[in-house]
């Protein structure tokens, strides 16, 4: 039992991201398809809804949400580390190894932050993979 104690802080951390409605993927599906119309029905279902809803909440936060933020973390990394448009050729060459080393660090930090915190997701329109950050210019 004690070996499972590490789960508590992890669950508490993962409880933050689904506070944003857009991060409740499984709960959104349940709310869409399985909600009794009547108040009595909702009360009757509550013994099931409480544990299932809570489990789905944590599944949303711990398992599903990270699938949606890995690319946002990459956008953060690209904008933070690889936006070199305003820099000279010499400076780009000088900092290249640092950028290579910094890339996984920034990506992991961004990924963990976006996974656990209720941050705003990066809109798809802001992820132009085929052009440099900030537009084609």
């Amino acid at each position: 039992m004690r070996s499972l104690l590490w789960l508590i802080p992890l669950l508490l951390l993962a409880a933050c991201a689904p506070l944003r409605e857009e991060n409740r993927f499984g709960l959104a599906e349940l709310n869409e398809h399985v909600v009794p119309e009547s108040t009595a029905g909702r009360w009757a279902l509550s013994p099931v809804a409480m544990p299932v809803g809570l489990a789905t909440y944590f599944v949303d936060g711990l398992l599903i949400h990270p699938l949606f933020v890995w690319d946002d973390a990459w956008t953060d990394t690209r904008d933070t580390v690889w936006d070199t448009r305003d820099e000279s050729r010499f400076r780009k060459s000088l900092t290249f190894p640092l950028r290579v080393v910094g890339t996984p660090v920034v990506w992991v930090l961004s990924f963990v932050g976006r996974w656990l915190l209720p941050l705003e997701n990066v809109a798809l329109a802001d992820q132009p993979w085929d052009q440099p950050p900030g537009g084609a210019g």
Partner: peptide, 15 residues
């Protein structure tokens, strides 16, 4: 919002 967010409200009520 017990109608629109039933599962969320029920699930987080212990929290």
């Amino acid at each position: 919002d017990w109608q629109g967010e039933y599962w969320y409200e029920a699930g987080v009520s212990p929290l």
